[in-house]
């Protein structure tokens, strides 16, 4: 039997880079604030912890891949993030990489 810890570790490694791509892609589609983005990610079974997502969003913002505006319509002010033009260019690059990996996997299955 496979050790569950071992599986979890490999899964985490495989997923690591996909989280930022998922955030950029979802926010390019519809700008959103942190907690809602968490729900949207978990709805497409890309579950991520809040204490990972919020710092990640801030880092992507510092890197110029996201922009944000304070939404003060509610009682609690929220940062609403949207993907910047740079972020959109990065999505295209990363998506192309992902396609390449995916077709490489399919090639391996055929051989």
């Amino acid at each position: 039997m496979l050790d569950p810890d071992l599986v979890a570790q490999h899964r985490q490694e495989l997923r690591r880079g996909t989280t930022s791509l998922a955030c950029l892609a979802l926010l390019a589609h519809t700008p959103d604030y942190g907690y809602n983005l968490l729900s949207r990610l978990s709805a497409i079974s890309l579950t991520i912890e809040a204490n990972t997502l919020y710092p990640l969003l801030r880092r992507l913002d510092k890197q110029g891949l996201l922009t944000f505006e304070w939404d003060t319509t509610d009682s609690r002010p929220r940062k609403v993030y949207a993907t910047s033009p740079d972020g959109i260019s990065l999505i295209d690059l990363l998506r192309a990489d992902w396609e390449r990996l995916s077709s490489a996997l399919q090639l391996m299955e055929k051989s």
Binding site: G34, Y35, Y54, P77, R78, K79
Partner: peptide, 13 residues
């Protein structure tokens, strides 16, 4: 800035 972000995150949670 981070404090404001955290307040939002915790409040929403």
């Amino acid at each position: 800035e981070v404090s404001a972000g955290l307040r939002e995150a915790i409040g929403d949670a």
